[in-house]
C-alpha cells in the first residue's frame, strides 16, 4: 500500500466496491457449482455425479467430439488467419478497409445469425452451397451436409473456421507489424529467398503471438456453444455433441443440475490444465 501514491489510493477506493462485488459473485457462483456437483437432488453429500460422468458412455463420445472439434477448428483458424494476415501485411494502401471488411466481418456477425446462416447455406433442398457447387460442376448431386455424423462435424468445423479465423488473423497481423523490416532487408542482402525469410524470420519472431493465439482459441473453441447448438443441436445422433452442448442439455433439458455442475467442473479442470501447460511453455520461452 505504501508504494501507492495518493491518486492511486483514491482510485483504488473508488473501484473497490465493484471489485469486491465481482469477486464475491464469482466466488459464490463457483462455490455453488462445486456444492451442487457434490450433492444429490435432496441436498445430500454424494460422489455419484462424478461417478456418472465416467460411466456415462455419452460423456466419452462428447470428449472425443470435442477433441475433433477443437483440433479441426483451431488448426483451420490459425492457418487461414496466418495466411490472410500475411496477405494483408503486404498491402499498405487501403489496409484499414481491407482489415475491417475481411477480418472483422465474420467475427462481428452474431453467433446465432452465423449459425442460422450456415445452416441454410448447407441445406440440401435449397442450400446456396450445393447450388454453387453444382453450377461449378464440382459435384453432380446435392450433398446432405448435415445429415451424417461425420459430415455434420466437418460442416460445423468449416463454419467455425470462417467465424473465428478473423481473430487469429488480427493477432497475427499485429504481431507481423512489430517485426523490424531491417531483418528482412538484411536477409535479402544475404540472399535468402522469400520462403526462407518466412521460415527463419517471420515464424520465430511471431512465435509468442502464435502461442498466445493458440492458447486463447483453444480455450474459446472448447467453450464455444452457439454455433453447434443452432446448426445441429448436437445431432445427428451424437455426431456433433461436445462437452458444452451436453452440459447444457443435462442442465436445461433434463434438469439434472447436479450432474451438469459436476461435468462443468470436470471441464474446468481440463481447461485449467491446458491453460497451465501453455502458460508454462510461454513463460519458459520468455525466460530464455
Amino acid at each position: 500500500m505504501s508504494t501507492l501514491n495518493r491518486e492511486e489510493k483514491s482510485a483504488l477506493k473508488m473501484v473497490l466496491p465493484y471489485v469486491i462485488l465481482t469477486v464475491l459473485l464469482f466466488v459464490f457462483l463457483l462455490g455453488s457449482n462445486l456444492f451442487n456437483s457434490f450433492t444429490d437432488k435432496n441436498g445430500n453429500w454424494t460422489l455419484q455425479n462424478y461417478i456418472d460422468n465416467f460411466t456415462d458412455p455419452v460423456v466419452g463420445r462428447t470428449l472425443l467430439n470435442t477433441i475433433v472439434w477443437v483440433v479441426g477448428s483451431v488448426s483451420g483458424q490459425l492457418l487461414l488467419g496466418l495466411f490472410v494476415a500475411l496477405l494483408l501485411n503486404e498491402s499498405t494502401k487501403g489496409q484499414i478497409i481491407f482489415r475491417s471488411i475481411i477480418l472483422i466481418l465474420p467475427w462481428a456477425v452474431l453467433d446465432i445469425v452465423a449459425g442460422v446462416m450456415w445452416k441454410w447455406m448447407y441445406n440440401d433442398m435449397y442450400g446456396v452451397l450445393n447450388d454453387v457447387l453444382v453450377k461449378m460442376h464440382i459435384i453432380r448431386d446435392y450433398i446432405p451436409w448435415l445429415a451424417t455424423e461425420n459430415m455434420a462435424m466437418l460442416s460445423v468445423i468449416i463454419a467455425n473456421i470462417w467465424k473465428g479465423f478473423c481473430l487469429s488473423g488480427m493477432f497475427f497481423l499485429a504481431g507481423l507489424q512489430t517485426i523490424p523490416i531491417d531483418l528482412y532487408e538484411a536477409a535479402e542482402i544475404d540472399g535468402a529467398n522469400s520462403f526462407k525469410r518466412f521460415w527463419t524470420i517471420t515464424v520465430p519472431q511471431l512465435k509468442p503471438v502464435i502461442m498466445t493465439t493458440l492458447m486463447l482459441t483453444t480455450i474459446w473453441t472448447i467453450n464455444y456453444f452457439p454455433l453447434i447448438y443452432t446448426m445441429t443441436g448436437g445431432g445427428p445422433g451424437y455426431g456433433t455433441e461436445t462437452i458444452v452442448t451436453y452440459i447444457y442439455k443435462l442442465g436445461f433439458k433434463f434438469m439434472e443440475f447436479n450432474r451438469s455442475a459436476s461435468l462443468s467442473n470436470v471441464l474446468f479442470v481440463i481447461i485449467f490444465f491446458i491453460a497451465f501447460l501453455f502458460l508454462r511453455s510461454i513463460a519458459k520461452e520468455e525466460a530464455r
Binding site: 445431432g235 445427428p236 445422433g237 451424437y238 433439458k253 433434463f254 434438469m255
Partner: peptide, 22 residues
C-alpha cells in the same frame, strides 16, 4: 412425468440411429 424429456431423447436417438444406419 418429469423424466419425459430424457425418454423423448432416447426415442429421437433410436430413430436417428436407424436412419443413419448405425
Amino acid at each position: 412425468i418429469p423424466q419425459y424429456p430424457q425418454v423423448s431423447e432416447q426415442i429421437q436417438i433410436m430413430i436417428q440411429n436407424v436412419l443413419l444406419g448405425n
